[in-house]
Amino acid sequence: MNPKRKRRLIVALLVIAAATVAISLTVFALQQNMNYLYSPTEIDAGKAPPHHQFRLGGVVKEHSVVRDGQSLKVQFVVTDRFHDMPVVYTGILPDLFREGQSVIVTGHMDDGHFVGTEVLAKHDETYMPKEVADAIRKAQAAGRADPKHMTHPKGGS
């Protein structure tokens, strides 16, 4: 092999090695940090991972917010008007957090309730998962806001 070709070969091998390392690291990092979004109905259907972190999307149920008197612990219920999910969170809630408004909570399941580590709230419907928005629209169309009477089995996708 002449020196020029040899050098090219070395460069090519280095580039391939670097690309392989970069791609595998990226895929690994993506897998570790991908957060799926589920509605309470999907969690009820067993779609959410039991131990892994994910995001819970829905509406803060009216009259469900209960604060602890001593700390910043707060409990509330996230609903998609078909199923409810109790949430525990310790910390400061965002300015736009309101009962009846949509939220996305990042966290994990623990013994039947959701332990939140981060709460995002927005007036904007775009922050609401489409499935949840659709489910809520259906519920409103049915004119039955009280989720206890909602027995419609199909809420999510």
């Binding site: 993506l30 940090n33 979004l37």
Partner: peptide, 24 residues
């Protein structure tokens, strides 16, 4: 763009957490 890609391919609603960016 991954959330858009995930959405287009029907992998569900995905967000990519800050540690992905930070560590890489």
């Amino acid at each position: 763009l991954f959330p858009l890609i995930g959405d287009a391919f029907g992998w569900g609603r995905i967000s990519v957490g800050p540690p992905y960016f930070g560590s890489l």
